[in-house]
């Protein structure tokens, strides 16, 4: 059982590093889409590994922590997707050096499809 504990401590350290990098990304990135990217990816893996690490250190809680990890894996990317889409629909243009907007094309295709239906 000692090994499980050390795995747990390792996961805690990894999660802490990812959470710190996510916070740094939110501070450093230029616009909403980049910030969302940094915040979501880093905080998803960070929170997941911190919670799983707690589960390994305290094996009684392992099943509960696994359920929480699954919940975060579903809910976190979904919410960031919704925020990004809402920002795009509200008319926020991404700041980019190379002008490319792949979402606009898919948007047009979707709209034509909806008209056909």
């Amino acid at each position: 059982m000692e090994i499980l504990k050390y795995i747990g401590y390792g996961l805690l350290i990894i999660g802490g590093i990812f959470l710190f990098l996510g916070a740094l990304g939110i501070y450093r990135m230029p616009d909403l889409y980049n910030r969302l990217q940094a915040g979501t990816k880093a905080s998803t893996i960070g929170a997941m590994s911190v919670i799983l690490g707690v589960g390994f250190i305290q094996p009684d809680w392992l099943i509960k922590t696994l359920i929480i990890v699954v919940f975060i894996a579903v809910a976190n990317p979904l919410s960031s997707h919704a925020i990004g889409r809402a920002a795009y629909k509200a008319g926020l243009k991404p700041i980019m050096k190379t002008k490319m907007d792949a979402y606009e094309k898919t948007q047009n295709i979707q709209e034509t499809k909806e008209v056909k239906l």
Binding site: A75, H81, A82
Partner: peptide, 18 residues
Amino acid sequence: SKPSSSLVQTGSRILFPL
């Protein structure tokens, strides 16, 4: 509200019972 994307629809169907 405007119609949401299919990702949000599928995800909320999974999350609602939880």
